[in-house]
Amino acid sequence: MITRRFNYALLAGLVALGLPAISHADEVLVAVAANFTAPMKIIATAFEKATGHQAELSFGSTGKLYTQIRNGAPFDVLLAADDETPAKLVKEGLAVPASRFTYAIGALVLWSAKPGFVDNEGAVLKKGAFAHLALAAPKLAPYGAAAMETLSKIGLMSTLSPKFVQGENIAQAYQFVSTGNAELGFVALSQVYANGKLTSGSVWVVPTDLYHPIRQDAVILTRGKINPAARDLVKFLKSKQAQDVIRSYGYTL
């Protein structure tokens, strides 16, 4: 019985593979750190309108995108959540050195979907009246690493680590909190902030002396070196139009 079902699945898969691939002349494949998802979607639409190029976006944790690039993923541009990963790619000869620049400086926040749950000094962490604290995997996501740094600085690492639930990237950490399965979690300000204000719940904007600044660098990858759309995208990211979008999500520049 199972074999017959597998045959149908195989058939369906072959049909899907046979569909012609849609291609565009000037298309740029962009690997985007998960925290930058919302602003990048808006920027990409504006970019397509302004230049006629096509931007295809792929989201994930910076660490995961790095691994994919190292293994030959066909990205033209990387928008990372840190400055180390693009620097490392340049050193490894996988990115264009002169193209590297900081497109945004991110902020770490402690957020709960429940209004009034997180106070604006983060005292809720000391009280510990919660079962789960969500964060992004520190090995893969710079925001996760910043959360760990913050917790060690305020001396709560060992008391709170049994309550950690790790998302594979910052989007999953956000999802754990937004569904209420984790009472609170460390996410990016950009995920809970739009048009200059908090979108829902309660938040503590973590003071910047508790973690290293999250300088988010972009870089053109070797594959995108001769792609005019890649060059134009990086130019567009530096435009006032793009920068206004970036700021509206709580990033600094």
Partner: peptide
Amino acid sequence: GGNIPDKTRVVSVQIYDQVEAM
């Protein structure tokens, strides 16, 4: 799962983590 050691970090997730972190 939330990737918690001894509670929800099963082999497949552990492998995925290791591969992602190279």
